[in-house]
Design a protein around this nucleic acid. Structure first.
Lengths: 168, 168
DNA sequence: TATTGTTATACTCTATAACTATA
DNA sequence: TATAGTTATAGAGTATAACAATA
């Protein structure tokens, strides 16, 4: 990392820099990335790291991680579904999802009800508290998304969205 | 995850299914992603996960992880530089880089020589073994890249590359 | 037999802090 | 006082395996 800088909003919001330091870090002249520059996976990952770091920081006040956020949204959009269905949709291992849901349940944001049709599975729902929290969470997520648009440029964000959204 | 297996034919048609799995998994009717679909970070991450999994699998015979690969390429392109410089270029914490280099050194792929100008720092170089291994590694990485192009489509890959490479 | 959810283990990656030896 | 490198710890994410209850 170490590049990045221009964007107005980063200064405004006091984002965070990796090297952070004041121009003195520039002492180490920049190295070339070599053939790394020709790997889509690498440039993809650099942006992805930026996104996660900004997301985590933006939602720090609610202590919500990306995976938790994705689970909350999918439960909201598909109330009453099982852990297996949620996990499969998001690509989260059932073992990991069990622990993740445990935490969300502890916070009273979701409930697991017994399923009438299959005694093995649980029906997942947001609680009233969960819905209330999600309003605030979505607002913060929107701030993050705006900052991302600012980081890559609104037009580039739209283009990336179109390229990535529909090939799945 | 569960999907994977970038079969050529599906990539060619651009169809691809997320659940990918053996048709029986279709039993669980597909859930909607809700507002997740409007987060660039999410779609970015899905592809990024695919890339890493394919990369790791493709380079499994050489037991090379993405981070190790990136370090090898940057050392190759910038021989004699310090750990600090490498780490800063790639955005890898110096603590983590130290362990990572330890492993590469154990495998005789890199060497750390004392720096003449600063007794604190090490100069990093590929060994002859390292250069030889890197030939094989790059060949596997190229296979991975080709599979990625097949997965997203060659044209889309190029477009993504252009959008992501130069805004840093 | 297969699936749902659970617990447990192990490994990678990230983020710190503390330490040394230099500068 | 700051930097280069090391070691240690803790947390998240990923990947397994094993288990009980149920299908």
């Amino acid at each position: 990392m170490t590049r990045r800088r221009p964007v107005a909003s980063t200064a405004k919001t006091g984002l965070r820099r990796r090297a952070a330091s004041p121009a003195r870090a520039e002492k180490l002249n920049k190295l070339t990335l070599g053939q790394l520059d020709y790997h889509l996976g690498y440039v993809l990952r650099r942006l992805q790291i930026w996104v996660f770091q900004d997301f985590i920081q933006t939602l720090a006040t609610m202590k919500v991680r990306p995976a938790q956020y994705s689970v909350l949204l999918v439960i909201e959009a598909n109330p009453g579904r099982s852990q297996a269905a949620i996990g499969q949709t998001l690509g989260i291992e059932r073992a990991r999802l069990a622990r993740l849901l445990h935490e969300l349940e502890r916070r009273k944001w979701i409930s697991r009800r017994a399923s009438g049709s299959d005694a093995r599975s649980h029906c997942l729902h947001l609680t009233a508290d969960g819905e209330k929290a999600l309003v605030r969470i979505k607002s913060l997520a929107a701030q993050h998304e705006a900052r991302l648009a600012d980081h890559v440029g609104a037009k580039r964000r739209t283009q990336l969205m179109e390229l990535l959204r529909d090939f799945g």
